[in-house]
Amino acid sequence: MSEGGAMRDQWYPVGMTKQLTAQGRDTMLMGEPIRVALAGGAPSVTDGTGRALPVIDRFGHVWTSLGQPEKDLFTIPEVDQPGRRLVDVGVCRVRCSPLRAVENFLDIAHFPFVHTDILGSEPHTEVARYEVEIRDDVDEVWATKVKFFQPQAAKSAEGGITTDYMYRVCAPTCSVLYKTCPPKPGEWDVIALFVQPLTETLCDVWPYMALYDDDAEMTDLIHFQQMIFVQDRSVLENQLPALLPLDPGREIPTRADMTSIAYRRWLKRHGFTYGAQLVAA
């Protein structure tokens, strides 16, 4: 099997559609150089030898694969609902495993310490029991009934509220979270993290949002999410080992980490090991 194993046949984000140019942009995917460009008005991706790679243009981003994806790229049905504002947050590069970037996105227990007074605050640190499952029909990891007390859950939130969350891992380096939407009770705001694995320890992260928020300036929405992600960045760059350990024993989870446990199990089951450490060194 070539470098990347089963992850070679998956789809990855490699750029924002509206930033494409004819001369293109050189970037990397799983250690291999690629070029992402606009050819005849449509996105095109080529590898280091000039070979055309498969392309999907979805969620404001260009997606490609070095291998032969068996499945179409996942969908996010909420994105098509009328009234939502679609937000391209822009790229942020992180020196970490792409899998660690996703795992951090699935975590709520760090909110009071890393996103202090925004997504969490002491003494409201307790993580209540929630539900996690690997849904075999769609082959995704889902965490539901997640609740956390937040001083400022979103740009549109005034004061503290208990926020409900759902998390969904729909590809090895992509996750979507659904959270309480203060201006529109009963609906969920959608925030996605699309991670482009440049190497096993370097990634470009492309957050993306579909929000019900008629009042906030678009720039404020972008900056709120950039703020949250960059607060995580210094943590992600200082985890040891850099690779995500998939075998138990190297790291100690608790009940609050059930989503992470399921994610690691799902990765291992599929042989999604690019950016992972299989046997404790």
């Binding site: 890393v114 202090t116 007074d117 703020m227 949250i228 960059v230 210094s234």
Partner: peptide, 9 residues
């Protein structure tokens, strides 16, 4: 703070 600089907990 700004993002990248943590609170002095």
């Amino acid at each position: 703070e700004m993002p990248g600089i943590h609170r002095l907990h």
